[in-house]
């Protein structure tokens, strides 16, 4: 297993934790709405890249910043993190909520994005293929919907009811709710996605029960040059479920 270094950084007053490993071009991974399943898959990318896996403010080991009220505040957070790290350009990989964030970052700062991979991204309103509303799902309902094969996430879930686990999820859902409670999608994305002229990959688990893979069609229509890859036998957590999905990302970015 690859050894990631734990780094802490202060970005505009908020202390964040980032795991980093490998060498080569930087690859910034933006995680989704829940971090309980970890980032083991990212180890593979360190063979070719300097892999950066930060926790967003309000998630995992990073501190909270209740003054970050919308996705644009998170875009600015990553502008400032990259500035802090002295990194001009990155390969950007965003998953789920992080896919929405990555798309927004790339729209606003496309000169800083070498290549862009969006994995089961949130953010777009697709009336024909609506997503599950993760804020409305109960803690019991959510986990089985995340994967095609439940065994993949089982080791990451507590066996007995675990108050710390519940509290960690509540905290992360609080951060998500701050961003998405009133509008679970971004009405402005369709207007701006055409700006994504960098090489872009849309990757989806075919059996995604959170954000249906059928949404790939709408994304593709708004980013015509994007490649689309649908991975069979996988759900929303496609990177955790299918090593070939992780390899596909590596191949695309190389």
């Amino acid at each position: 297993m690859v050894r990631f270094e734990r780094e802490t950084h202060e970005v505009n007053g908020v202390k964040i934790v980032m795991y980093a490993a490998g060498s080569g071009q930087p690859l910034l991974f933006l995680h989704g709405a829940g971090t309980f399943h970890g980032f083991e898959f990212a180890g593979k990318w360190t063979e070719n890249f300097r892999v950066l896996v930060p926790y967003h403010p309000g998630f995992g080991e990073s501190d909270d910043d209740p003054t970050m009220l919308d996705m644009h505040d998170y875009v600015m957070h990553y502008v400032e993190l990259l500035d802090t790290l002295g990194i001009e350009k990155v390969n950007l990989v965003g998953f789920s909520l992080g896919g929405y964030l990555a798309a927004r970052f790339a729209i606003e700062h496309r000169e800083r994005v070498i290549k862009l991979a969006l994995i089961g991204p949130a953010g777009l309103r697709d009336k024909d293929n609506p997503p599950a509303d993760v804020l409305a799902l109960s803690p019991e309902q959510l986990p089985p919907l995340l994967v095609s094969n439940f065994d993949v996430i089982k080791p990451h879930l507590p066996v007995q009811p675990d108050l710390d686990f519940i509290a960690d999820r509540y905290r992360e859902m609080t951060t998500v709710a701050r961003l998405l409670w009133e509008k679970p999608w971004d009405r402005k994305l369709p207007r701006h996605l055409h700006r994504l002229k960098m090489p872009t990959l849309l990757l989806w688990g075919e059996e995604d029960k959170i954000i249906p893979s059928a949404q790939a069609k709408l994304w593709k229509s708004l980013i015509p040059a994007a490649d689309v890859e649908i991975v069979g036998g996988a759900g929303h957590l496609v990177l955790d479920e299918k090593p070939e999905a992780v390899t596909s990302i590596a191949r695309f970015l190389s």
């Binding site: 509540y170 709710a177 409670w181």
Partner: peptide
């Protein structure tokens, strides 16, 4: 307890 309705401390106290 919808997200953010109570603090983490209150959540733990009430769950107890």
């Amino acid at each position: 307890a919808p997200p953010g309705y109570i603090s983490i401390e209150q959540l733990k106290a009430r769950a107890a």
